[in-house]
């Protein structure tokens, strides 16, 4: 198991390095000039060049990457004299639009996105798995049909419709304060305010994901129920309850861990639509503003990189969890 862990960790580190390189190279060759973008209206070529130097963009891309990596570890210093500024480690770059280190922007946005992701994740797993199990156990009965209806609605409604509907309903029944909406409240200082802030975004995202999970759980439980080892469990004299809890679910839910991990990782990169609808200052909104409004390259670079890292790291977590659950993976 330890050997497996080490091998996986090494592979993950390698993948992250490669991902960061590719993202970096892609952004270096984008047909946009960050130096020009930082220059403003009264711009001359000499100011652009000065800015380019100040941003460290006047050196070859591999040197830029080297500085970027160094900045991640040791922090970074931009410019000279009065106009100079520091970004402490891990420094991802400096946003001229926001006049802030990207790491600061991320540090502000990430808790929001994480809160959104973790809450909806728990909600959709609870809903999806329990509905799926009920639908499988009551196959063909009204419970099954009702869950099918739920699945259809959940899958067909895109979040930009369901989110707006939920928002409208919440506003109509005064469940959301439109002025307070989206204000970040830490769960450590005010857990109730935090939950109240996030409950509708959670429902929006959970609705979309729970539908898929219901379907997936249902078919997995049905498939596992017809396995020979479930018949063995029955022949032993185990009760249906124990068979479901111990024998069927263990095997049926293992594959769900894989997709759940990846879905969660995807959300950590930012839920662009949901964050925008509910005015949540998370990573999704940070990136979409950087892309559409500000052309804020350091921010886009960082959010892209982070999203990739989340997926890679989550993959590792999922694989380790899977090895823990399925002994056949451990030896392989």
């Amino acid at each position: 198991m330890l050997k497996y862990l080490i091998r996986r960790l090494a592979a993950t580190a390698l993948v992250i390095t490669l991902v960061s390189m590719s993202v970096f190279v892609i952004f270096a060759y984008l047909p946009m000039d960050p130096a020009r973008l930082t220059c403003g209206k009264a711009c001359t070529p000499s100011i652009i060049e000065a800015n380019r130097h100040r941003l460290g963009l006047d050196v070859p891309v591999q040197v830029q990457y080297g500085r970027f990596v160094k900045g991640l570890v040791a922090g970074r210093h931009y410019g000279e004299g009065v106009a100079s500024f520091d970004c402490p480690a891990p420094a991802f770059g400096y946003s001229f639009n926001k006049h802030a280190c990207v790491s600061t922007l991320i540090a502000d946005a990430f808790p929001v996105t994480f809160s959104l992701a973790i809450g909806s994740f728990i909600l959709w797993l609870l809903i999806g798995v329990s509905l799926g199990v009920v639908a499988a156990k009551r196959q063909g009965k009204w419970q099954d049909k009702a869950s099918t209806a739920f699945v259809l609605v959940g899958i067909s409604l895109p979040t930009f419709i369901s989110g707006i509907l939920i928002l409208l309903l919440a506003l109509k029944f005064n469940l959301i304060d439109p002025i307070e909406m989206g204000r970040w409240v830490s769960p450590f200082t005010d857990p109730i305010g935090w939950a109240r802030n996030f409950i509708f975004p959670w429902i929006t995202l959970a609705l979309a994901f729970a539908a898929t999970y219901t379907r997936f759980t249902r078919s997995n439980v049905l498939e596992t129920s017809s396995e020979d080892y479930i018949r063995t469990a029955r022949a032993k004299g185990l009760s249906e309850k124990v068979i479901l809890r111990k024998h069927t679910l263990r095997a049926a839910l293992a594959p769900i861990i894989t997709i759940a991990g990846l879905d969660f990782a995807g959300l950590l990169g930012g839920a662009i639509i949901t964050e925008n609808i509910f005015n949540l200052p998370g990573l999704g909104r940070l990136s979409i503003r950087a892309v559409l409004v500000d052309y804020d390259l350091p921010v886009i670079l960082t959010t892209t990189l982070l999203a990739a890292v989340f997926v890679v790291v989550m993959n590792l977590v999922v694989d380790i969890l899977y090895a823990y659950i399925d002994p056949r993976v451990r030896v392989a």
Binding site: E227, A235, K236, D326
Partner: peptide, 16 residues
């Protein structure tokens, strides 16, 4: 008690 035809699939793969 009963034993079955295919011992490869009659035991739960996740438990010792």
């Amino acid at each position: 008690a009963m034993i079955f035809q295919d011992p490869m699939s009659a035991l739960h793969p996740y438990y010792t």
